[in-house]
Computed example of a mutant assay.
Amino acid sequence: MSKNTHRLDEKASGVYIIAATPFGDDGELDLYSIDSLTDFYLEKGVTGFTILGMMGEAPKLSESETTTVMERILKRVNGRVPVVVGVSHSSNRHVQRLSNEAMSLGAAGVMVAPAPNLKTDEQVHGYYAGIANLLGKDIPICLQDFPQSTAVHTSVAVIHRLIDEFPQVVMLKHEDFPGMRKLTRIRKESEAEGRRRISILVGNGGLFLPQEMLRGADGAMTGFAYPEMLVQVCKLFADGKADQAEDLFNIYLPLLRHEFQYGIGLALRKETLRRRGAIRSAFVRKPGPALDGTDHEELTRLIARQDALLG
């Protein structure tokens, strides 16, 4: 098994790619494509991986398939970069079991979204506190703040409280929408109050990446099919070249925005990855979207325009 040579910590930055889960045209796991996709992401220079996220179709996997995907990717990565495993589930015991399994296989930490139907700050805090206590101090935690999917609002006050109470909370995946003022508040209030600074990586397909980097984000945790753009943009920001970063981002923006569409975005992402040779099939497991002829033509045109602009 892969050695756990990385531990997720507050200094994490760069691009943690949200890995797609490849299936064959028959809907079964494609182990060959898991390997080729892992190699593709590494070749494009990603800082880390996040596997079994919502765009990784984790809820559509059986328990044995979940283990297979974890084992396969962690073995292929072989300690070269940190791997965060999504462990969100309605059962706390399942979160605990999956977290322990992930860490034993060499994961750097786990990502947890709140359970559905939490309505108040106390409920959200209580949920995360229960998970943190259940997992213990040795498992680094990334909080996933994605209310568009969970319908749970995690307030700035709750995030601060969790940071203060649980040293294992080392990262926030920021996906509130609109949420840039939230990002600014977390950074400014933390600094003003002398709070521990945690890593903030942003999602939402990277749609607002330049603005979020200028507001204090440390990088991206998303799955755009051109990860090299995310890598280059984050590096340019780190080098103090914000205008160059945004100019590069803008070339890719039409395709990134297209891939961000709810409902069909994952099918577009997988088809683009297939066209780039990263996976053999663009199959999205049911229930899930499939592209029609017009969708394919549209994607072809957007890719051609992007290629022309890149020269």
Rank of each mutant, 00 (worst) to 15 (best):
S62C: 09
L52C: 03
S64A: 12
G53Q: 08
Y41I: 00
T66N: 10
M70P: 01
S64L: 08
F40I: 03
E57Q: 15
T38D: 02
G48T: 12
G53I: 02
M54N: 10
M55W: 09
K60R: 15
R72W: 03
M70E: 02
E57K: 10
E63R: 15
T47R: 09
E57Y: 12
E65M: 06
G45N: 08
L61W: 14
E43V: 09
E43A: 15
E57I: 13
G53C: 08
A58D: 08
M54F: 13
T66F: 10
R76K: 14
T68S: 00
I73A: 03
E65A: 06
K60P: 09
M54T: 15
F40M: 04
T67E: 05
T47Q: 04
R76H: 11
M70R: 04
M70D: 00
V69I: 10
T38K: 05
T50S: 14
I51R: 00
S62K: 09
E65H: 09
G45H: 07
L42H: 07
G56T: 03
L52F: 01
M55L: 12
I51T: 00
R76Y: 10
I73G: 01
L52M: 05
E71N: 11
R72E: 01
L52V: 03
G48L: 05
K60V: 11
T50D: 10
S64Y: 07
E65I: 01
S64I: 11
R76N: 11
M55V: 05
D39L: 10
M54P: 09
G48A: 08
E43K: 15
I73H: 08
K60Q: 14
T47E: 04
S62F: 02
L42R: 04
F49S: 00
L74Q: 08
E57R: 12
I51G: 01
Y41N: 06
K60H: 11
S64C: 06
F49W: 02
E71S: 12
F49M: 03
G45D: 10
V46S: 00
S64F: 08
E43F: 07
T38H: 00
M70F: 03
E71A: 08
I73S: 03
A58H: 13
D39R: 11
T66G: 06
G53T: 08
K44C: 10
